[in-house]
Design a protein around this nucleic acid. Structure first.
Lengths: 245, 245
DNA sequence: AAGTGGTCTAGACCACGAA
DNA sequence: TCGTGGTCTAGACCACTTA
């Protein structure tokens, strides 16, 4: 059971833990990079990779000539990673279940085909579900999967709690990136019926395309009852700027 | 007028340009890293920093033991950076203007104070505007600014096209990160009146906290008419994983 | 076996901020 | 002036893929 993680990841995790356990309180400075390198018996380059991860996750703020300062991470959660709708809800303490699961192989209409970079009319696996949080409808979820990605998944959809987790663990699919487009609209009569809300109720609409090995493998369409879910994301500045004037 | 950019940024820009100009077509491989280093007279480490930027922006996909392959970047736009609402609209070809600008110093209610990490009741500058795209109302924008951040900005709000651009260029404020929380709800009677839509129409609600030097400096509340704007974001996998089982 | 990217070293010099 | 982080070098060895 050897640790297979690179040193910089281990150092990142160690520093993060020490920050979270208040060994480095909010507002204090981390030891200088060369000193961390000496103590941990690694080069400064390796320390810097760990510090870069801390920056990306919002734990520290670095000022050249000054030092690396611990931020109030409790108020600045790291959220720039791919999030799963069902897992996010579970983390918030909801019991997530599904109702009305329908699986079908369908021909992709033009927009979907373009999103998945396949030909219009090509077959995709369509999984339609209503997600319930603590037994209450919260979203209509429709996933369109490339058929070759998860062969035979149709037969076990009912027992799946998180589609992404199953893809990663059972089908060796590593999801590397996702693009989410978020908008809002009013619920149609049909959607209102499925979600048990009045027709015309506002819905938060998330359309996600997930990528593995540089190519799209899935599109997910989520129609979420407004007020029961909030989508959060942390964005960062572009690197390599000079502020002239 | 010397270039003050680091070499890795220049190499990143050069590679990106060559990809976009089809010198490296979609699906082809970039030269190996050591070869790029030789040709450009830099170390492989520097080349790697440039390649990491290309990965983050979704231009290439790297496989160990194989090479660095060019992705279909036209379908996978880089969108993980802080975006300005008004600038995004302008890029889409809309003429953006504002109506009903109201500026006022107000006492922060509890939630706002917590978001900005100030005391409840402390003074903040409140800027309330209705944004118009091609003359048509598209969003109610309310910005709450820490008073010390942009002293005297009240008098020139009318002439400001992009708040963030003015903060960066005129007040030397560098916005380094932002956290957006996105939800949906129905328009109240008052909001409907301001936006010229029927009461109860769905709104896309974006609440953003912007950070400079590790601390919050502003909160923006956007209530956007549904269907006229789409929020897009690209998220990535966590680094440092091993898929056991 | 050969070739690729992934990690890491032990230095060096520069740019910036504070004293 | 001094100490910090920012950039960069010229190597080295490892892990993985393909043949």
């Amino acid at each position: 059971m050897a640790e297979r993680l690179p040193q910089y990841v281990r150092i990142y995790e160690a520093l993060r833990r020490r920050i979270q356990e208040n060994e480095f309180p909010v507002g204090s400075f981390l030891p200088p990079e060369f000193e961390l390198g000496d103590k941990l018996k690694v080069s400064r380059t390796t320390v810097r990779k760990a510090v870069e991860m801390l920056i990306k996750d919002g734990f520290v703020y670095v000022r050249r000539g000054v030092g690396t300062q611990v931020l109030d991470f409790k108020a600045t959660q790291p959220l720039q990673y791919i999030t799963s709708f069902s897992e996010t809800l579970r983390e918030q303490g909801f019991e997530v279940s599904y109702r009305g699961v329908r699986v079908k192989t369908v021909s992709a209409p033009a927009k979907l085909a373009a999103d998945l970079r396949i030909g219009a009319g090509d077959k995709v696996l369509r999984i339609h579900r209503v997600a319930l949080a603590n037994g209450k409808p919260i979203a209509i979820m429709v996933n369109y999967l490339l058929p070759e990605v998860a062969v035979g998944i149709e037969g076990r959809i009912d027992r799946i709690k998180s589609l992404y987790a199953v893809l990663e663990s059972e089908y060796d699919v590593v999801i590397e990136a996702a693009i989410d487009s978020i908008s809002a609209r009013a619920a149609s009569a049909e959607e209102a019926e499925e979600l048990k809300v009045p027709e015309g109720s506002p819905l938060l609409v998330v359309r996600r395309i997930t990528y593995s090995k540089g190519s799209p493998i899935e599109r997910a369409d989520l129609d979420i009852v407004a007020g029961r879910y909030e989508y959060s994301v942390r964005t960062m500045e572009r690197p390599g700027r000079r502020g002239a004037k």
